[in-house]
Simulated assay, not measured.
Amino acid sequence: MKKNIIALTVAGALAGGSLSLAAAENPDIETMDQKVSYGVGLIMGERMINDVPDLQMEQFLQGFRHGHAGDEDQKRMSREEVQRAMMEYQAQMQEQAGAQQQELAQKNLEAGQQFLAENAEREGVQTTESGLQYEIIEEGDGDTPSAEDRVRVHYTGELISGQVFDSSRERGEPVTFGLNQVIPGWTEGLQLMPEGSRAKLYIPADLAYGPGGNQRIGPNETLVFDVELLKINPGS
């Protein structure tokens, strides 16, 4: 988009074509009306970076001018045509986002599979029938929990890139939860750890958050957790 040239040209048209380029680029912001007008434009511009990433500045400014003038004869599209265009655009954006999500999911899946294949060859790493991998760092001497138990743990969660996405250690507070309330990789992995153990869990995507991911984890991410099983059924 040729935003710099178009914006100056149309800004002059908004003022009746009488402004010089320098004045159009740096209008006065002194009166309350001028400040409010600039502020509204600034907020709208910031929002549209994400809402309409391919905003065509010339058409936008013309539509803004026609809408603000309130002259129906000036308007080049009916309200129905605008709504239809908006709906079609939204559908197109959703389709593009879906395609990008699928592409990223496949990329993450393949990277995770390669990581797990190489990791399985390391000494001390064991692989279960489900595909979960685990590595005991410190062996505890307590009981092992069942899926119906509650556990208190300290943990650090990483992507295979090494990026930490969550850590109870950083927060300075262990967490307590039911083993049947977490991702399958945790439910299975914690049942392999005697109380007092510390282990690394290497969790494939299908035992984690799958193709949907979540706010901090992308689609089909393989996850690595450094987990300490502090207590089974704390408080009991």
Rank of each mutant, 00 (worst) to 15 (best):
M86F: 04
T31D: 11
S37C: 10
E80M: 05
G213L: 03
M86N: 15
M193L: 12
Q114D: 13
G142F: 02
V10A: 15
D71S: 07
G162V: 10
L42D: 04
G213W: 00
H154I: 03
Q215T: 11
V153S: 08
A99I: 13
A23H: 07
S18F: 11
D54Q: 15
R152N: 05
Q113W: 00
K231R: 13
A111P: 05
D166Q: 06
A22N: 01
G16T: 09
E46S: 07
A24Y: 05
Q102N: 13
G189D: 08
M93K: 14
R169E: 10
T128I: 00
V151N: 05
N220Y: 03
N214P: 05
S236N: 13
D51F: 01
K200L: 08
Q92Y: 07
A99D: 09
D166K: 02
R150V: 08
K107Y: 08
R79T: 14
Q106F: 00
I136S: 12
A120Q: 11
T222H: 03
V40G: 02
A199H: 05
R79V: 12
W186R: 08
V82Y: 10
E81L: 04
D206V: 04
P184A: 12
A111D: 10
G210T: 04
E103F: 01
D73C: 07
F115E: 04
T31Y: 08
T144S: 15
G189K: 08
N119D: 01
R150N: 13
L61E: 06
E129H: 09
Q34T: 06
D28F: 00
Y202D: 04
M44P: 00
Q102Y: 02
L223E: 01
T144K: 15
L19E: 12
D28V: 10
V224I: 14
P184V: 08
A15W: 12
E103R: 14
V52I: 13
T128H: 01
R76K: 14
T128G: 02
G140K: 15
G98N: 15
A23C: 06
N233S: 10
S161M: 00
D206N: 12
Q133T: 04
E135D: 08
D206E: 12
G213M: 09
T222I: 05
N108C: 09
E95F: 01
D71R: 13
Y134S: 09
P234Y: 03
N108W: 11
D226M: 05
A208W: 01
E228R: 10
P184C: 05
N220A: 02
V164S: 03
Y209H: 09
S161H: 06
S167N: 11
L179P: 00
A97I: 09
R169C: 04
E138L: 01
P219K: 02
E95G: 07
D206G: 04
G218L: 02
F64M: 15
T176F: 03
I136T: 14
V224P: 00
Y89C: 14
L179S: 04
G162K: 02
L230H: 06
Q133E: 09
L109R: 09
Q133H: 03
D51L: 11
M48A: 13
T31G: 13
E148G: 03
E228M: 08
A205M: 00
G185N: 06
